[in-house]
């Protein structure tokens, strides 16, 4: 039996007004990409843009601007390659997180990236740069950008997972250098939720899942509840409530551990399952 330690547990199902929603198809096309480019203020130069369609995305390049729209999710990655995460070798970011959220909110409003009541501030990340000589005497360290992350909210419930996020990149002067957004539009209520399953049932599913994966030892760090939205490359038809567990898989030597996550649907009348079983890879013949 795997040794599973629950360091934090959710004792009972939350009492929240959740529903199951159907999501609009991503429908990414060159027309949509051009529309978004205009939304970001590129209309004056679009005749100079290069459009390229790849298997999983459509890419628009114009000057230093690179806009990628992902076909399955509708996710958007918009960067100014001359400034995004680039160190000018003198900037050192001085504004605080509150100011970063304020500036990023203004950008969201200006470009109509999301409605104000659809998200909440989540975290300000920072890009640090450093350098050092071999004698470890000349050390330089600075902060050169703020990555401001907003979390999508639906019915006042947070959207968890790799999706449901909007990240605005600000340089040391507060100017936008890029954005990333995975935010599938809701179409309509697909199904009312007929009650939530108790977290204990989800825990049991987690234990069974770990057993099938041959995991010997795991510490369950946290259990969260929210809607769950997938990442850049995933097609998703419904948005539904889920339990999300964060895990540690300890290394046998040292103090390291690999992290992991397990997601399972929470509604008694869920649509399908959020549990993802591993796709089977062909076994390699023994190496000689």
């Amino acid at each position: 039996m795997p040794e599973i330690n629950f360091l934090n547990r959710m004792e009972k199902a939350p009492d929240l007004p959740v529903k199951i929603y159907s999501l609009q198809r991503a429908g990414v096309s060159t027309r949509k990409v051009l529309e978004f480019a205009k939304q970001m203020g590129l209309e004056a130069v679009l005749e100079k843009a290069r459009l390229q369609t790849e298997k999983d995305r459509i890419i628009l390049a114009q000057g230093q601007i690179l806009l990628q729209c992902f076909k399955e999710s509708g996710g958007i990655r918009f960067i100014d390659q001359s400034r995004w995460m680039v160190d000018d070798q003198k900037s050192d970011l001085a504004f605080d997180d509150e100011k970063a959220f304020e500036m990023a909110r203004a950008i969201i409003k200006k470009h109509k990236l999301a409605k104000a009541d659809e998200f909440k501030p989540l975290k300000v990340t920072h890009l640090h740069v450093g350098s050092m000589d071999e004698k470890m005497k000349n050390v330089q360290e600075r902060v050169i950008d703020a990555g401001v992350i907003f979390q999508r909210m639906v019915d006042g419930v947070p959207v968890l997972g790799p999706g449901g996020k909007l990240m605005i990149f600000l340089d040391a002067e507060g100017g936008m250098t890029g954005l990333e957004k995975i935010w599938r539009p809701i179409q309509e209520v697909f199904r009312k939720v007929e009650g939530l399953r108790e977290p204990k049932l989800a825990e049991n599913q987690l234990v069974r899942f770990l057993k099938t994966r041959g995991i010997q030892k795991a510490d369950v760090e946290s259990a969260e509840f929210g809607y769950f939205e997938l990442g850049w490359h995933d097609r998703q038809q419904t948005l539904q409530p889920a339990y999300v567990f964060k895990l540690r898989l300890p290394l046998n030597e040292g103090e390291g551990y690999m992290k992991s996550a397990f997601v399972v649907e929470a509604a008694k009348n869920a649509v399908g399952t959020l549990i993802r079983y591993k796709r089977v890879m062909e076994e390699q013949p023994p190496r000689k």
Binding site: G231, M258, K259, S260, R276
Partner: peptide, 15 residues
């Protein structure tokens, strides 16, 4: 620090 082994970031190598 630590990385993650999860279905939810399995596109990292490909990306």
């Amino acid at each position: 620090g630590n990385g993650t082994d999860s279905w939810w970031n399995d596109d990292l190598g490909s990306d």
